[in-house]
């Protein structure tokens, strides 16, 4: 099935934007609605439609939910051989459909599953793939997809195009694109597809699933870190820090002062003699902002500081600062997050 780079194809045969929907154990992964939101943005003002492909078995009810996000069509590839995830089965079934229907753009979530199946699909089809994009745009001059992504650990951004092969494929970082709006009425339709899969096609088989139990702390990969400093006043202060971190799906960090006091393990220390972190959001609570602490977190995308002292140096390097008592501010933040979540599906 593998095609060559110079596909020598007629580019105008290709239309529509496809989202490769991700489901795990029968539940749709949130990145799917983010990709739909982005795809809808990209088709605005064009004749292209937004379609979702989802592979699985006996998940009709879950698949129908996607129609309420304004997609024009869902291709539901249904087979008992697709009940559990396999790179072999999923990539074969999806690649066949892509080759048949010729979408112009294909978006895949850059999850650990999407980044497994994405390159396999691209290699099967014979097209390029741009990994872990954080921004997508259509070039108004020639309609090509401009795919922007970080490289060199975020030190450099690159915008990449796939000029002569189709479809143009990207994996898209979860949590970056805005979710599609849930609408009251479904517009599109679900089209069921029976793949030409055989048992022998699936060589690498999942034989067991082990749900993750206790979470290990992983500051380097964390997207959100809530850190406590001496201003939390004692070891029990970390209960509050942890509560906020859990609510935001983040990890707990600490200044060295708290580690030295024995309030928390050194594993959590951020800074020159601790871990260097670069999360999307770093929330410093009761941390003065000594240079050795800043050395480990100043590359965070967004820094938020909560401190009672308006002169604290941390406010000089933050994006948003709150002068206030963390014991009052943190519980109020958690209440607000709850209110937000109440609106979500």
């Amino acid at each position: 099935m593998r095609r060559k780079v110079n596909q020598a194809i007629n580019l105008s045969d290709y239309k529509d934007i496809w989202v490769i929907g991700e489901q795990r154990e029968g539940k749709i992964h949130p990145v799917t609605t983010e990709l739909i939101g982005e795809a809808k943005k990209l088709v605005e003002g064009t004749a292209n439609q937004v379609m979702v492909v989802i592979a699985g078995h006996n998940i009709e009810a879950e698949v129908e939910k996607l129609l309420y996000y304004g997609v024009d069509k869902v291709y539901y590839i249904n087979s008992p051989l697709l009940e559990t995830f396999s790179t072999d089965g999923y990539s074969k079934a999806i690649a066949e459909l892509i080759l048949e229907k010729k979408p112009e753009i294909v978006l895949v979530g850059a999850t650990s599953i999407g980044r497994d199946i994405g390159p396999r699909l691209a290699a099967k089809i014979g097209t390029g793939l741009v990994a872990d994009c954080t921004k997508l745009e259509i070039d108004p001059s020639d309609g090509k997809l401009l795919q922007t992504r970080p490289a060199f650990g975020g030190n450099l951004m690159a915008t990449i195009i796939c000029p002569i092969n189709r479809p143009q494929m990207a994996t898209v970082r979860p949590g970056v694109m805005k979710k599609a709006v849930h609408e009251a009425n479904a517009v599109g339709v679900v089209e069921k597809i029976s793949p030409t899969l055989k048992d022998e096609d699936i060589v690498a088989k999942v034989v067991e699933m082990i749900p993750s139990g206790k979470k290990r702390i992983n500051l380097t990969d964390a997207k959100i870190i809530v850190s406590g400093g001496r201003g939390i006043k004692g070891p029990e202060g970390f209960d509050l820090i942890k509560a906020l971190a859990d609510k935001l799906g983040g990890e707990v960090g600490s200044s060295r002062a708290c580690v030295d006091c024995g309030w928390i393990d050194h594993m959590h220390q951020v800074g020159q003699t601790g871990t260097t972190v670069r999360p999307v959001v770093y929330i410093a609570c009761g941390i003065s902002g000594a240079i050795q602490h800043l050395a480990g977190m100043s590359d965070s995308d967004y820094i938020i500081a909560i401190n009672t002292d308006p002169e604290a140096p941390i406010f000089k390097v933050c994006d948003y600062g709150i002068v206030g008592d963390l014991k009052e501010v943190i519980p109020a933040m958690m209440e607000e997050v709850d209110k937000l979540k109440a609106f979500e599906l």
């Binding site: 097209t127 390029g128 401009l146 450099l156 915008t159 990449i160 195009i161 796939c162 590359d299 933050c318």
Partner: peptide, 15 residues
């Protein structure tokens, strides 16, 4: 190559 770098730039991280 199927993909080409069209441009690269330094992310602006102004606070």
């Amino acid at each position: 190559s199927t993909t080409n770098v069209y441009k690269s730039f330094v992310p602006t991280k102004s606070k």
